[in-house]
Design a protein around this nucleic acid. Structure first.
Lengths: 243, 243
DNA sequence: GAGTGGTCTAGACCACTCA
DNA sequence: GAGTGGTCTAGACCACTCA
């Protein structure tokens, strides 16, 4: 038997949700692992199954846990590939979806400019890593990306050859640095492309591009990565439901 | 006592949810009205309160109902103003938010071009209404909008002076035509502005604009309105959370 | 067949609203 | 003080998974 520490004025299901979220943030279980069964949680915290289910429901709807009937409830491994597809219609001539290739143009230790320091919650001129890359689909550049990481957590990236890895960075962050991206927030704007990005994207100067800024965080909410991606507006289409 | 008609293989809470959704779509209650209390629904359908709550929970999370503790559960009146603010940062110099004014440039009965007929689910060349307007903030145009409506439901709009109404069309649709917008789906892209829209928005030809296409539906899911809005990219900023 | 999550019951008691 | 939604209990039984 265990007990819930947080604010006693909150409902029990809320306190259990917070307690579980805290343990997930502290890496008590790794992504893909199961948490204790509902019966075990009921017994451990002396709560009815209905109350336990309501706490687990909340974490499931937040995208942190994933239920599988008959098997258990698991820490969800985020699937950020799909978020990319929400924004861009990267398709081959045959119409199938495809993860764009990655070509790293540079990776280097630098000090954080003020916008980056602010986004990542670091002091000005804190040590960071800056990565510049383009994403390509059938030799055509579709996205130009600038990526900033706090050096304290990602030092190990400087010692490997990123161009020999797959096109997705988040699995590499997890394997090489033990850092798991749990959430992200994206902001979209549009602009006329400047000379530098026009060259990287192989489009005429001043054509319209979509700009996507993304701040990615770990389970505890600490910022892990800030990136700014630019893509030609022709490939861009984003849908959202409103109620 | 009443009984649920839908597929008996579905869980009871699901069948009650579908049953209530059907009645809402059939206008059994108007927006702002209360549905029966949980106790009344339990008695009417011979279900426990837990099951009734789960059905109501589903409709609440879909944005169709709204709970108010101690008062009741109400048909939600959609607040589409807020969706506009998610996309554009329309702000006065003082920083406060403001609904942009509306200036109707034209409203006329026409036949549906193929893209419009397809979006609204109408036959080609079906009778529709086309509205062109600009939205202004402190005399500055911020959005140029083209709006298409099925004439069968919106005929009454042709008989009033829209420029003597408020800037929001959805309350007018409800008051004048009895049509309630329940959901909408928006798609975002960007483009270089052409001569016509450059003039309406008072921006240089070829500057980047954001294009928002919106399909609005009633509670039954029938398309009510299709609109395409263009705004200068400088005023545009859209944020989304990803998990 | 043992173990898991999914559905459902029949309540009790609490917090809030409103006349 | 009557009526509403909000929380919580202590289960029972079902559907699914996996050895």
């Amino acid at each position: 038997m265990n007990s819930l520490s947080s604010d006693v004025r909150l409902p029990l299901y809320q306190r259990l949700r917070d307690h579980l979220a805290q343990q997930i943030a502290n890496n008590r279980w790794r992504p893909g692992e199961a948490i204790p069964t509902e019966a075990a949680l009921s017994a451990e915290y002396q709560l009815s199954t209905g109350t336990v289910r309501k706490a687990v429901d909340a974490l499931v709807s937040e995208g942190i846990l994933e239920r599988q009937q008959g098997r258990g409830t698991f820490i969800r491994r985020p699937q950020f590939q799909s978020s990319l597809f929400r924004f861009f219609r990267f398709q081959t001539a045959a119409g199938e979806r495809q993860v764009p290739e990655s070509r790293i143009l540079s990776i280097e230790p630098v000090t954080a400019p003020s916008a980056v320091a602010q986004a990542l919650g670091l002091p000005l001129e804190a040590p960071v890593i800056r990565i510049v890359r383009v994403r390509l689909l059938e030799v055509q550049p579709v996205l130009a990306e600038e990526i900033w990481l706090p050096r304290s957590r990602f030092q190990a990236l400087l010692e490997i050859d990123l161009n020999r890895q797959g096109p997705l960075l988040y699995p590499i962050y997890e394997e090489v640095c033990g850092q798991v991206v749990a959430y992200a927030e994206e902001t979209l704007t549009a602009e006329s492309v400047n000379h530098l990005h026009a060259r990287l994207l192989q489009v005429p100067v001043n054509s319209p591009v979509v700009v996507i800024e993304r701040l990615a965080r770990d389970y505890a909410g600490t910022p892990l990565e800030w990136r700014r991606s630019r893509g030609h507006a022709e490939h861009f289409r984003y849908s959202v439901d409103i109620r």
